[in-house]
Amino acid sequence: MPDVSPTSITLNGDPYPIHADLPLTALLERLNMRRSRVAVEINLQIVPKARYEETIVRAGDKVEIINFVGGG
């Protein structure tokens, strides 16, 4: 067991490691996602685009990031 266990969030249903709390904008950047193409929900709450800068993703958060795909 490492003495410092890595923290993680649940991202789209799967565990995703983060080393510390981080701004949502940093997470999107790390994932190479443009804000004009996605919508984000944290712990079932929609995050409005205007609040991306001030929103911090914390260990244990359940984060959903969606986009549009082909459909009928």
Partner: peptide, 9 residues
């Protein structure tokens, strides 16, 4: 029309 789905991480 488009569908709404989780992004592929």
């Amino acid at each position: 029309t488009v569908a709404v789905r989780r992004v592929n991480i």
